[in-house]
Design a protein around this nucleic acid. Structure first.
Length: 860
DNA sequence: CGTAATACG
């Protein structure tokens, strides 16, 4: 049973991290083989083209054991090239055979297209959570004109803006590709999936770049939609998304609590009755105090070389000091004022809230250029030259799809919503796929279109005739925010740590467990709602699986990133912003592995060391676990373990096993309302199943904290790289290598904080479906796009099933891609390169590398 | 505080 492990890691400068890794492992290849990583996706490499070319040895960019793909920041803010910023790399081992690669994903995306009308609409779907929508239009050949796109060269000449455009001078409407040019997306297409490596922009501590970030994210989402359609392959989206979407994805003290909600839902919080009453009594006073800034008394304290601020609050005449110290007045008001906080959307009116792309036969009037081989960078430029740029730059506001108002009510207790989605999909998908196999497409199509799924609008007349059209236009629209402002803090909300500060000053003392219980019951992520909604759309609407939270919905304290400047890794005060999301189709191939292992950040505490040495555990529980196949040897590659993992019901495609495991997780879950579970897991000496006890012990908050900072011990205060004399003690050596002994299938790889302020996240797949192989694939190749080799017409007539299901993409995305994936042949799989995406080559050991990376920097 | 170029996370 072949398995494939993918890891994603924000390395915060690959040059240095790589150097450190090589100091221990000699080569990156050895590091990868030690961790059984077949594909390593890196973010924040901070490299540039010339570094890759000139210092490829330093970066281990060339090896016999893998290929490497790179993208770098081209420029920032439309200005000069910023070197040493952002940048991605994907290291691909030979096992994960790559078909092609694209480092310029938005080159065929447009902000605006003219020459189509509502009558051309095939089908559209609105996603009410954030009012984003996807629409397909079937256009007669030759219609549809790219507009609103001004190349950089002509931008200066068209400075006199058309009426109706609010674009400030000096902010030319660029092409989509030119706007997202910071080396943040790297796509590799493999035999069985498309891998999208992403580094989402950081909003900035003052949310200065939230507008850019949201537009970037929506662009990525529209690219995912395009990739699903044009490749027929499922997507694996990995990387640093700079979003924590659940309350559990941020440290409990950094959860945001709504005071009204806390008051109303106090009974959901498992804390002592007297504490509940105390809190409920004090909330009105807190609200009253914080609502009037006259109650804020702020004192400036001069330090030796810095100043800090202290906060005193006037509680109805009683003045109490709150918290310790703060860095600024603004910070205090941001945290303690109950007013909502908004930030301006600087892009409002500058860029339209639409992304367009075409699906059509080659040689059409719009795309112009002929099909070229992937490594011909001129093709792109020629295509550009042939295009008729509309210098008016008119764009349309995406208001065609009035949907439900924003904000669907949602609870924040785990991710039940996502689970319901998965469950209902799995059932329905099975039914429909079996129907499809019998080639009875039409009734199913009718069924899907007519079953009244709301938010879907379709034009049945157009659908009936769209085979005659030769161009399909796809439009992704989004509502960036309301009234040109993003809400980054809601009214009546406080960080739990600040609420705690206030409660302390009022004489109410909550224990760590109490606070954790408050966070789990009514806490919210501190990411802005527009960001969490984006993630929820990926999961609930596009139905991707967040591999970590899906398998571990209730774990607390599992983070991928910590603020290095504040040494927060020591206290495990972090956030989970690095993800591996997969299209639902791949869900059945994920290897869950052993429950405590894919929580994985296993650290060598004395107890665990002893546990390992004995091959048993702190109890019969762990021994039981060990006998069950816990890896204690140094050769996690051995076949026995692999087949064990794959066949003993740990693989999720065995429904029964999955249910059992899920049940175990839920039973152990800390938010069962039992406060004792949370922090005292290790000590809980109840009658729980040994396996559960072991699980609780390994995943207790104490251990989480240990995991988080254990490798700090490797941190040497003196010198950047330990010299030979500083060679690590046997103990540390032990510890270092320990992380490679226990194999994690889905979870985290707790890399040393010396390497990066992020750790790596990983997940593992079976490369072949388990149950007796797949259904026989049809010899109908799927790959069509602006530069596809398959004319849409012939495609439609020979694969009318697939074509007729195109609209269903919107109605049931996983069904669509599941069908394509299961039954049709991706063109890429046998055709070598894929013309629609091949735009970059693996790094090669040659003196002239740069030519392969100058895709977007060619002449315009 | 660390990476990298003098900003950014």
């Amino acid at each position: 049973m072949e398995i494939l492990q993918i890891a994603s890691w924000n390395v915060n400068g690959w040059k240095r991290s790589c150097e450190l890794i090589k100091h221990r492992e000699v080569t990156v290849a050895q590091f990868l083989s030690k961790l059984n990583i077949d594909i390593l996706c890196l973010q924040e490499t901070k490299t540039n083209d010339s570094t890759i070319e000139n210092e490829f040895r330093l970066l281990d960019a060339y090896s016999d054991e893998y290929e490497t793909y790179w993208t770098c920041c081209k420029k920032k803010g439309g200005e000069k090239i910023q070197r040493g910023y952002s940048g991605l790399a994907t290291y691909v081992g030979h096992k994960a055979k790559i078909i092609c690669c694209c480092s310029d994903p938005f080159r065929n995306f447009f902000f605006s297209v003219d020459g189509f009308s509502d009558e051309d609409l095939l089908v559209s779907r609105c996603f009410p959570r954030d009012n984003s929508s996807v629409s397909f239009y079937a256009l007669p050949r030759g219609s549809g004109h790219i507009s609103g796109v001004v190349s950089n060269q002509t931008a200066g000449q068209t400075a006199g803006q058309t009426a109706g455009q609010i674009r400030p001078a000096g902010a030319p409407l660029q092409s989509v590709s030119d706007l997202f040019n910071e080396g943040r997306v790297l796509i590799t297409i493999h035999n069985q999936f498309v891998l999208v490596n992403v580094y989402a922009p950081y909003s900035g501590c003052d949310y200065n770049r939230l507008d850019y970030k949201m537009r970037f994210l929506h662009a990525v989402r529209s690219k995912l939609l395009e990739l699903r359609i044009t490749t027929g392959l499922p997507i694996i989206l990995v990387g640093d998304l700079n979003i924590s979407f659940r309350n559990r994805d941020v440290h409990y003290l950094n959860n945001v609590v709504n005071l009204d909600e806390l008051q109303k839902e106090i009974n959901k919080v498992s804390i002592r009755e007297d504490l509940k009453q105390r809190i409920c009594k004090q909330i009105p006073l807190i609200i009253e105090t914080l609502n009037n800034r006259d109650n804020f008394v702020i004192k400036k304290v001069k330090g030796e070389n810095s100043e800090s601020f202290r906060l005193y609050l006037n509680f109805n005449g009683e003045v109490k000091r709150v918290g310790t110290k703060f860095t600024s007045m603004e910070e205090i008001y941001f945290f303690f004022s109950l007013d909502p906080v908004f930030v301006e959307d600087k892009y409002a009116g500058v860029y339209p809230n639409d992304f367009f792309f075409f699906l059509q036969e080659p040689g059409g009037d719009i795309q112009g250029g002929d099909v070229r081989s992937g490594d011909d960078e001129e093709g792109d430029n020629q295509r550009r030259d042939n295009e008729e740029w509309d210098k008016e730059g008119i764009f349309h506001k995406g208001n065609d799809h009035p949907g439900d108002p924003l904000h669907r009510s949602e609870t924040h207790h785990g991710n039940h919503e996502e689970r319901d989605v998965y469950d209902s999909f799995a059932e329905e998908s099975e039914q429909i796929c079996s129907h499809l196999r019998k080639e009875e497409a039409a009734p199913i199509e009718d069924y899907l279109l007519h079953r009244g799924r709301k938010n879907v609008k379709c034009n049945l007349k157009k659908i009936a005739t769209h085979g005659e059209c030769r161009t399909i236009l796809c439009r992704y629209s989004f509502q960036s925010c309301i009234d040109g402002k993003y809400n980054v803090k809601k009214a009546n909300t406080l960080y739990l740590k600040h609420l705690n500060d206030i409660l302390i000053s009022l004489g109410t003392f909550l224990s760590r467990e109490d606070l954790l219980n408050v966070a789990n019951a009514v806490g919210h992520s501190s990411s802005p709602e527009c960001c969490t909604n984006f993630m929820k759309n990926l999961i609930c609407e596009d139905r991707m699986v967040d591999t970590f939270s899906f398998f571990y919905p209730f774990l607390n304290g599992k983070f991928t990133c910590w603020d290095a400047s504040k040494q927060h890794r020591m206290s495990n005060e972090g956030s989970r912003i690095d993800y591996i999301l997969v299209d639902f189709v791949l869900y059945a191939r994920l290897i869950k592995g052993h429950s405590h292992l894919y929580a994985s950040p296993v650290i060598l505490t004395d107890e665990l060391r002893e546990w390992l040495r004995r091959g048993g555990g702190p109890s019969e529980a762990a021994r039981d676990e060990a006998n069950n196949g816990v890896v204690t040897d140094d050769a996690p590659n051995n076949a026995a373990e692999t087949s064990n993992a794959a066949n003993t019901g740990n693989s999720v495609d065995n429904d029964k096993a999955a249910d059992n495991d899920k049940a175990a997780d839920t039973g152990n879950a800390v938010d069962t309302g039992n406060a004792a579970n949370t922090d005292n897991a290790a000590n809980t000496d109840n009658a729980a199943h040994p396996r559960e006890r072991s699980y609780l012990w390994v995943n207790s908050p104490e251990n989480n904290c240990n995991y988080a900072n254990y490798f700090n011990r490797l941190r040497k205060k003196a010198g950047r790289i330990p010299t030979e004399e500083e060679a690590l003690s046997g103990d540390e050596e032990d510890i270092y290598h320990f992380q490679f002994k226990l194999r994690s299938y889905i979870g985290f790889i707790y890399t040393s904080p010396r390497l990066s302020d992020h750790i790596a996240v990983n997940c593992t797949f079976l490369t072949k479906a388990k149950s007796g192989g797949e259904e026989k694939r049809k010899q109908i190749p799927i790959c069509f796009s602006g530069e596809a080799t398959i004319p849409l017409r012939s495609f439609c007539s020979s694969a009318e099933q697939y074509a007729s299901f195109l609209p269903l993409y919107l109605i049931d995305t996983p069904l669509f891609s599941g069908y394509a994936f299961k039954f049709l042949h991706p063109l890429h799989a046998h055709g070598g390169t894929c013309p629609s995406v091949a735009r970059a080559q693996p790094h090669k050991k040659t003196s002239k590398i740069t030519q392969y990376f100058s895709i977007k920097r060619g002449k315009r």
